[in-house]
């Protein structure tokens, strides 16, 4: 029986270590949430007292609210366009005889390999020369470049599960190419489009290294706003704002898991 007992202890040890690592992963999250409730004007954990004052301060700050809306609008537009472009590219790569296909897909993926800061400074110079700096269009195009790899990759992966014969069958039954795609292929790749869209949204909504170099003076995005605020000095209002983002992300993740079984795509 001792061999079995040893095996059980090994399994328990592994599970214990895994639990420890998951706790480590969640540690900063928990710390931020706790710190947001302190009555002190400096960060302290555990919080001293309990107050929602810092949340009030965040909601009263017009700059934060403006940054939040700006980030959300940007991320939503980026997500929609990125899904459309990503589907076009993935469909062509999966269903057409693309010349030099490995080079094409390599190019579509390459923004992933380049450090964000390098793309950021290159765009800084380029946008300064072309006058795109500070424009919404410039920001949108830059975010499309860095989100496209995600949408192309997940949609391409779901395309592998979509049998080309289904579309052919729809054609034989009298559907035109558009209807055939819409009725036969789209339903199969929809989870991939959703997952790719979620990645695109998060990538756009979180981005600092590229965004910070090409922002204008009128609007800023939320992460860049927090980033600069922390550089000036930390106070519990940043913890309160972070806690709001944590709650938003958690809701987002649970909803995404329910919709598309998110963990399969990560």
């Amino acid at each position: 029986m001792s061999a079995r007992a040893a095996e059980r202890w090994r399994a328990r040890g592994l599970a214990g270590f895994a639990g420890l690592m998951l706790a480590f992963l969640m540690l900063p999250v928990v710390v931020v949430v706790l710190a947001s409730f302190t009555t002190t004007s400096y960060l302290t954990i555990p919080p001293k007292g309990l107050t929602l004052r810092w949340y009030g301060q965040v909601f009263a700050d017009a700059e934060y609210i403006d940054a939040l809306w700006f980030s959300l609008v940007l991320a939503i537009v980026v997500t929609v366009v990125s899904i459309v472009l990503g589907t076009m590219a993935a469909y062509a790569l999966a269903r057409r005889q693309v010349p030099a296909a490995p080079a094409v897909s390599g190019l579509l993926m390459s923004p992933l390999a380049f450090p964000g800061v390098v793309i950021g400074v290159a765009l800084l110079q380029y946008y300064t020369l072309t006058g795109l700096r500070g424009s919404f269009a410039g920001l949108l195009l830059a975010h499309l470049v860095i989100t496209l790899p995600y949408t192309v990759r997940t949609i391409l992966a779901s395309m592998a599960g979509a049998d080309p014969e289904i579309e052919a069958a729809a054609r034989v039954l009298g559907a035109n190419p558009w209807v055939a795609f819409w009725k036969a292929t789209l339903p199969v790749i929809r989870p991939g489009m959703m997952a790719g869209g979620l990645f695109a949204f998060i990538t756009s909504f979180d981005n600092v290294p590229v965004t910070i170099f090409i922002l204008g003076t009128r609007h800023t995005t939320l992460p860049v706003k927090i980033f600069t605020a922390i550089e000036y000095g930390v106070d519990p209002s940043i913890a309160a704002l972070s806690t709001l983002l944590i709650a938003g992300t958690a809701v987002f993740l649970v909803a995404a898991e329910r919709w598309v079984g998110f963990h399969r795509f990560a």
Partner: peptide
């Protein structure tokens, strides 16, 4: 698995801020 993915989706600035607090 979602516990592993969650920090990944959470804003990087927020995670970094957590480490400042720690």
């Amino acid at each position: 698995m979602l516990l592993v993915i969650f920090p990944l989706l959470l804003n990087l600035v927020v995670r970094t801020f957590g480490w400042i607090a720690l």
